[in-house]
Design a protein around this nucleic acid. Structure first.
Lengths: 186, 186
DNA sequence: GGCTATATCGAGGGAGCCTCGAATTACTAG
DNA sequence: CTAGTAATTCGAGGCTCCCTCGATATAGCC
């Protein structure tokens, strides 16, 4: 049995401060923000940051935890309740999520092959949900017969990238057009 | 009148060597490759690299010059000859171009606002060609009435990004689906 | 062969990444 | 309240990269 000791109070404080400053920095300058800068803003030495978050991905993973949970709840809801435009709702929500910080979409897209990171797990989960929503749409005849989960993943990450790099409006428009392409031809 | 002097032979040699090594490095490691590494591989001091190419963008611009010319020729041909799937051909060619090096798509997408770079000019030109091809398709009733040049630009850059980050196949599939979405509903 | 514009060189200042041993400090038990 | 200890923090140091600029070299012309 593993007795989980409570972390020291100063540790917890620093952890929270780091998270807060990292979030601010990532929002302002994207996921490539300087970690030393974040530590500085948090009033903490660089070693302390690494003590809490061994890598940039770990830090981002921690920041995304809550956000992820909310997204997955939505996914489940879309799957259990009867939802006519479940796919559109899912794609838009997942896109917004993947566009939280500039550069995040690339991490998520490339993150499927680095195993055992928090990011990895959530990518897999997102892919799964997309797959199931698409399967349902395909079977109900709402989507083209060859639509796959990969189509949804691609659209989501591409749209997130457009959101970051071009504009939210461009991303939204792209989603609209591509979803039309995924619909069954009448 | 401006008398253009011929560059010294050693200068020309170094210029070529730098281009060659930069191309190799960018292909292997993307547009963020270390410039010092490139200079090293070219057997030249870092200052020499900066002498020839004042910035990373300038270097990339020079590398893309020929490639760009070829792409624009294709664009013109698609516009003058009667071409049924001109749009598909254009999108695929432009995508392949923008996916030459990992990270290039982002430079191109973000490159529309930095004025006066070689990259900027070619972005504008690409956008123009896309616009004209779409206009024609729209008027002939092949495309949905609200299709715009921006749709083409977005698709092209998003697909290039997928090509880089996910796989060429994913990019191609995404193009197919989205072009279907841009087609007029029968 | 000598001159000079044209090029090259690379040290140097700045920044960021990440590690690791030394110093500190929050908690715990007596 | 006081030690003792384990958990935490600190930040210098080694590395890489960016970019600049004065000193140095040399290709090509007369």
């Amino acid at each position: 049995m593993t007795t989980t000791r409570r972390p020291r109070a100063d540790a917890r404080r620093n952890y929270e401060r780091l998270l807060a400053e990292a979030d601010a920095a990532f929002r302002e300058q994207g996921v490539e923000s300087s970690l030393e800068g974040i530590a500085r803003r948090a009033g903490v030495a660089i070693g302390t940051l690494y003590g809490h978050f061994p890598s940039r991905r770990a830090l981002i993973g921690a920041l995304l935890r809550d956000r992820n949970a909310t997204l997955f709840e939505l996914g489940e809801r879309l799957l259990t309740a009867p939802a006519p435009d479940a796919l559109a709702a899912w794609v838009r929500a997942a896109t917004a999520h993947a566009a939280t910080y500039r550069g995040l979409a690339a991490l998520i897209a490339g993150g499927l092959d680095d195993e055992a990171s928090e990011l990895h797990a959530s990518c897999v989960r997102m892919a799964e949900i997309g797959e199931r929503i698409v399967a349902r749409g395909r079977e109900s005849g709402a989507l083209r017969a060859d639509a796959t989960g990969a189509d949804v993943t691609a659209l989501t990450s591409a749209a997130a990238w457009l959101h970051e790099q071009v504009s939210p409006a461009a991303a939204d428009r792209h989603i609209t057009v591509t979803l039309d392409g995924l619909a069954a031809s009448p």
